[in-house]
């Protein structure tokens, strides 16, 4: 049998008025996707984070007053109650990026050098007069360069 001998008519059918309704269905699907502005949430993460936050709240409101004022005022103590996994899950959930965290930290230049420089300066053990002599000597040396 040759292909040319076979009728080329479309043998597939669609439900009645399918093509009349399809554009409306497509438009409504597009609209519903536009409305869906929230990303898909991982509900197990949401649950874990919610429990952790509830635990912190409970700690602050009920157990907090029993602690000393010093302990209550330290956020590190509160944060220490939360596991690292929960903190990571929270940061992921809130879509917080490393740069956002860095932007919130008040970093002073002196802090960055503190660990390296302080011991060296301490070891010099210079009094004020010796220090001035040393600076002068450095300035003089620099002038010859």
């Amino acid at each position: 049998m040759k292909l040319e001998e076979i009728d080329r008519d479309n043998i597939f059918k669609v439900p009645e008025s399918y093509f009349d309704e399809l554009p409306v269905r497509i438009q409504s699907k597009i609209s519903s996707r536009k409305r869906k502005f929230l990303p898909d949430l991982n509900w197990s993460v949401v649950l874990k984070v919610s429990i952790s936050l509830a635990a912190i709240l409970f700690f602050v409101l009920y157990l907090g007053p029993q602690k000393t004022q010093n302990e209550l005022s330290e956020p590190e103590n509160l944060l220490a109650q939360v596991s690292a996994d929960d903190v990571i899950a929270y940061l992921e959930l809130e879509d917080i990026w490393t740069n956002d965290i860095i932007a919130q930290i008040d970093i002073r230049e002196a802090d960055l050098w503190q660990d390296d420089e302080d011991p060296l300066i301490d070891e010099l053990d210079l009094d004020e007069e010796q220090l001035i002599d040393l600076i002068d000597a450095f300035k003089t040396e620099k002038d010859y360069l």
Binding site: M1, L3, I6, D7, I11, F12, K13, P15
Partner: peptide
């Protein structure tokens, strides 16, 4: 098994 087909035997063979 599709109910939405309307071809003769030869057309079905082709498909």
């Amino acid at each position: 098994s599709s109910p939405q087909l309307d071809g003769d035997e030869v057309q079905m063979k082709l498909q």
